[in-house]
């Protein structure tokens, strides 16, 4: 976690754009939350899902952050996606749902709740990223 799934129409977003969005999402998420970069997952799905817009951001994060942080995060992510892909606001919507951190194990460690991250966890995240 976090896990950001970008639902896009088939063939609509080139690899270079996908890579740029993934990097931007990682920068934004880590800048907003302080999470290690290696924990940020971004996936593009050319699925024929039934969302209200052709492009949709379906994000999943650890629960426990303030409403303000969550809203700013979603706004920043959606802004970056629009800027990189050129998709209009009318064609793009999104949400971030949350679940308890303790339901997930990543890198062999149960995820800590936001605000309860330890030095060991940060160190492991940096090691996983090769940094």
């Amino acid at each position: 976690m976090p896990y950001y799934r970008c639902v896009v129409p088939e063939g609509s977003v080139a690899y270079e754009q996908r890579a740029a969005v993934a990097k931007a999402f990682t920068d934004i998420h880590c800048g907003n939350t302080g999470a290690p970069r290696s924990f940020v997952h971004v996936v593009f799905d050319e699925a024929d899902d039934s969302w209200e817009t052709p492009y949709f951001l379906d994000g999943g994060n650890r629960a426990g952050r303030s409403e303000e942080v969550r809203a700013e995060l979603l706004d920043d992510l959606m802004g970056a996606f629009r800027e990189i892909t050129g998709v209009s606001s009318d064609d793009f919507s999104g949400r971030i749902t949350e679940g308890p951190a303790k339901w997930t194990m990543e890198g062999g460690m149960v995820l800590p709740e936001p605000g309860e991250e330890t030095e060991e966890w940060y160190s492991h995240g940096q090691a996983a990223a090769g940094g």
Binding site: Y3, Y15, R18, A19, A22, K23, F25, T26, D27, R37, S38, F39, V40, H41, V42, V43, F44, D45, E46, A129
Partner: peptide
């Protein structure tokens, strides 16, 4: 499966299974 070029972790191509 996530097709090649569609999955990223830390801003780089991912090798992660979920």
């Amino acid at each position: 499966d996530i097709p090649s070029g569609f999955g990223f972790r830390g801003g780089e191509p991912s090798t992660t299974s979920l």
